[in-house]
């Protein structure tokens, strides 16, 4: 479809401008932000591994990872809160929060470790749309506060 990178970039730029225009200015794709932190957790974003920092914005597909000395907590734009204990890994697979359009979806993928959750507006407005996927099954969020620990494999 595109014979060079610039073409793709231009296309994406147009798409972003159109999307921003429809939602008012400065609509970005932030899904949440890092709020609590101990040690040196990281965010894996595509091919990059970035040290997590307080206030850092998070995006769909971001994966958060902690080592034995680290913890990290974040808040999503629907008010949902998540925190990871040491040696844990969790990805924000999908986050759609457009209550005006009735578009609501939350999919967190917990890979290992221990995590605590407090659900937000997505769960409140559409309980069937919020899920935490784990290697041993799916947690359906009906609200509000719960925690999960995965056995070491």
């Amino acid at each position: 479809m595109f014979n060079n990178c610039r073409g793709i970039r231009a296309y994406i730029l147009v798409a972003i401008v159109l999307a921003a225009g429809m939602r008012g200015w400065s609509a970005d794709e932030t899904v949440g932000s890092v709020k609590t932190l101990t040690g040196s957790p990281v965010v894996v974003r595509g091919q990059q591994t970035i040290p997590a920092a307080l206030g850092m914005h998070l995006f769909e597909k971001d994966l958060l990872r902690t080592d034995a000395q680290s913890r990290v907590g974040f808040i999503l734009r629907d008010g949902a809160r998540v925190s990871l204990g040491p040696e844990s890994e969790l990805a924000v697979e999908k986050f759609v929060f457009e209550p005006g359009q009735g578009k609501l979806e939350l999919l967190l993928r917990m890979i290992r470790g221990v995590a605590a959750f407090v659900s937000g507006k997505i769960t409140q407005l559409s309980p069937a749309s919020a899920v935490v996927e784990t290697p041993v099954g799916m947690i359906g969020l009906r609200g509000t506060k719960f925690a999960a620990a995965l056995a070491a494999r």
Binding site: V118, T134, M138, G140, R142, K145, F146, A151
Partner: peptide, 23 residues
């Protein structure tokens, strides 16, 4: 052998919700 586990807790407003686990 340690198993995986999910626990439901009381939230800050004193409310206990519901969680469904399925596999």
């Amino acid at each position: 052998k340690p198993e995986s586990a999910v626990v439901l807790l009381k939230d800050d407003n004193g409310h206990v919700g519901r969680v469904r686990f399925e596999n």
